[in-house]
Design a protein around this nucleic acid. Sequence first.
DNA 1: GTCTATAGGCAGATAGAC
DNA 2: GTCTATCTGCCTATAGAC
Lengths: 192, 192
Amino acid sequence: MTIAAPDTRTRVLDVAERLVQTRGFNGFSYADISVEVGISKASLHYHFPTKAELVGCLVERYEHDFHLAVSRIDNSHDHALDRLKAYSEIYVRVLKADRMCLCGMLAADYTTLPDVIQKRVLKFFQFNEDWLTSALSRGRARKEITFAGKPSEAAHLLVSTLEGAMLLARAHKDIARFRLLAASLLKGLALK
Amino acid sequence: MTIAAPDTRTRVLDVAERLVQTRGFNGFSYADISVEVGISKASLHYHFPTKAELVGCLVERYEHDFHLAVSRIDNSHDHALDRLKAYSEIYVRVLKADRMCLCGMLAADYTTLPDVIQKRVLKFFQFNEDWLTSALSRGRARKEITFAGKPSEAAHLLVSTLEGAMLLARAHKDIARFRLLAASLLKGLALK
DNA sequence: GTCTATAGGCAGATAGAC
DNA sequence: GTCTATCTGCCTATAGAC
């Protein structure tokens, strides 16, 4: 299976994604993308008329990729702890690329975002919490894991902690500490 | 005890602080401050020659205020759970003002910050984790709370979770959910 | 300390040729 | 699809008068 050379539109999205994840919505410009992709600013506007549309597409693609990643987890892992571990490894992969979660970053920039993007960012977090809620709920019913309180609250805790830890880990350039924290989070769910 | 009318410098810092906490380092300008404080952009440069210096002062003041807040906690609360609850209420107060933690916000903007500011942001988190580490350590020694593993790791978990939850709560405009999460975090530390 | 005026550059975005 | 050229407006910052 070969991977086709990415078209211009995709290359633009790839560069823009990295820029948002590292510098935030207000920390990059069309000029930055132009240099890296090797086409003029005007050409970028052909593909994405406005910055709002560009970043909107970015969030859409990111959420789509996340959907794929978690359904792969559903198909390849059965035990709740394995699923949650695989989930946390998505975050580790992002951190390894010296990036913040795209939507975590946009959550920081939230008040400066166009309406359309704000809604998509919220949808992303909702999707994550929903998936975690169901993974936690199923795992507890099967007696694979244990935790107190509602699954939805535990899911909220997991997303918050992973996003927050990511924010700090990137600044500290300390992925090891992030892994340690993720591991101890999972340990807290293991049967005693 | 009366509060003196704030001087211009202080009013500039107050406005700038709110702008950074709501819009991020790259999401506001001297023009924004100028309008709100009611003096010209040029006058702002008299007080703070560069944006880097302005935000540097902001972080310094924020950390100083945090120092004061936690030493008040040390003096007014003895039980570890009370101390930690009071600590989490600092975050709630920030959230109530529709703001993100100043340094949490700057952690997102991290790669775009001047060196001096990057270092101060890290120092802020270090201070928080150190204080929490000692509060947790003392509390466990006195058998006021319980938790597994090193105090420093539990401290890291607390800061990460509170910062991450704040990021999400502000976007969702849902302080109640933040409170719930903070409460269940503390509940996890309570003696069984 | 505060102002007006302005520099010099970059932002997002458009027009029109190829 | 991509280009050059350009627009308008905002950015940080400075000069110099009051």
